[in-house]
Design a protein around this nucleic acid. Structure first.
Lengths: 193, 193, 193, 193
DNA sequence: GATGAATGAGCGTTCATTCAT
DNA sequence: TATGAATGAACGCTCATTCAT
């Protein structure tokens, strides 16, 4: 029970960190912000996370976990094209959040990418590569040449449209680009062809 | 001469702010960082800029100015398609910087977009819209339908590839996506056709 | 015990603030001055007081508290005239402090009254009104007409003599004016008469 | 002409300092505030006043000068009692200013009195003594015993009522106390009696 | 004399992190 | 394990004063 409580607290902190860091950015988020949102005393945070960066890393993992959950669900679909289109749909479905805060991983990457080598920046890169790899697998399954390039294009488009939607405060950007991506996926030649 | 000196210092500060904010991000850049880079005593910065945000705004304007210089140069080309391809080439030419620091305006947008409404975030949006508008004009001149959508796609691709190049620390991302964008521009139907 | 420690520290800070602000004035007193006097690390002050103004407000409350303690003690006397004379005696008893630093509330009022409306200036006014109201009650109990005018005269005389004693660095001013006030109180007609 | 210009500038600075220091207090007034109000470039101030304290001293002298002008005018009246009543009238005439900013000399005394010995605090004391001395002369001329005590009472009452009017933001305080002082002066026995 | 610019010490405040219990 | 309190380094900003022309 105690262990469960402890785990629950850790989870609450992680979830709060993920949300608040997405909303406010890493630098403008204080440990106190997160502790308050998680309803955990400030001094207690350090029993679960040695440093602020550890908490940010946990937030990043939380986003990675969300991504894995999403792709796992999509993996249930029989057709890789449908999986990719499902991904695009999921992105569009988050359009309001994207317009307010951008892509969680993308904005994290933008902020953490400015730090020197060997830190959270690289971790963020790994999460993004997770998505790239999944997309590449789908394109490969579709029998397309250069599936890695296709993945780059798709994920790049997502990051770009999220950033623009955020910068312009227009969720509609997600809709317009989502429509185009969906059509593009439809236009790609089939495996058998 | 005196005025020129003053202007020169202001310009040095602006340039330093643009560079360092691009490298380190807004929040991790201190006024002292910028002052040092511009070889200006800390207290003197405030003679030229009332607040740190003013200095960040100047850095943003500097990037906007760079953008205008680039598009003005491209405007000298007779063919809108060549102009757009020239833009892509310019982006690819900056691949190393992009892999290290991302797109100056894009990363600024990601960071400042997390602040509340009515501040630097909106200014950054305006700069990005500048680029969108220029691209839209080119696509319109090409006689394409929905030139605004094409602009969104192009600029979105740029933001996406810059973010990915930065997150993955791979300048090559810029090359690969740049090649694709160039081919895409070539594939677009001509006005006359 | 922990709470008591915390309260003790808060109290130490409040007392130090009251004393030092009285000695040096609000603007010439730094947070560090107060922290040092209270033997509290500078950064810790902000755990107890959100801003410097909060600390000044606490100092003001401390002075108000001292005033209430004094009037409560005087209230034990059976005769309102004796109470008023006791107040004058108390003032004269503080003559050395008054000659060095003026009246705590009065000098605070002079300094804070120069700030715009709606802040500490008004709070200080309230404390002074506390004294006026108490004096007015005594004069009313004495059966005098216009007890509010009498209160104004008495408290005004106190503020005036404190200011002069301070400006001239002469504690004796308090003695001379105190003697006069005492005689004046004696000369006032009795209720029954 | 140049000298006259210089003198004019010095005079403008002094007048501006007197006004603004009265309004804002010494510590909250910057050299730039005064320079702006006097329409003098900031860097130029130091040709007329070596330090900020020198400027404050000049402001104090300006107030002393105003006081001398007033008493000189009152000295034209044949009767010392009329002179003293004229003084009270003058005080009441400034009731709105007093309610907003207190007595110029008195608030200056309160603020500067907190500084260590041997500075502006003592200068301010001298100005107040000027008024005390003048009042004492009138009381002596009236043939009263202890004219210095009477002076102390009168000037003390003025400082007190100014402070209270300021703290309570009630010009009416000046009217009520002024009425009382005037009646008191009338009630004093005549020389011949 | 005159002036815009320069200078740096110091202030209020924040916050990641650690401590004492 | 849990927690309020403690700590101090650092930041943005102000301003009296000085400098260069």
């Amino acid at each position: 029970m105690r262990a469960r409580t402890a785990t629950a607290k850790r989870q609450r902190l992680t979830a709060a960190a993920a949300r608040i860091v997405h909303e406010q950015g890493v630098e403008r988020t204080t440990i106190a912000d997160i502790a308050r949102a998680a309803d955990v005393p400030v001094g207690n945070v350090y029993y679960y996370f040695k440093t602020k960066d550890d908490l940010v890393a946990a937030a990043l993992s939380e986003h990675a976990h969300g991504l894995e959950t999403l792709t796992a669900r999509l993996d249930l679909l029989p057709d890789p094209r449908q999986r990719l289109k499902g991904l695009v749909e999921a992105w569009v479905g988050e359009r309001d959040l994207a317009a307010r805060c951008g892509c969680p991983t993308g904005t994290l990457a933008a902020e953490l990418g400015k730090r020197g080598e060997g830190g959270l920046g690289e971790e963020t890169g790994k999460v993004i590569r997770l998505l790239l790899d999944w997309a590449e697998r789908q394109f490969r399954e579709l029998g397309l040449p250069a599936p890695d390039d296709h993945a780059l294009t798709l994920v790049g488009a997502y990051q770009g449209m999220s950033l623009l939607a955020n910068a312009l405060r227009e969720p509609d950007v997600m809709v317009r680009e989502g429509r185009r991506l969906s059509a593009w996926l439809d236009s790609l030649p089939d495996k058998g062809s």
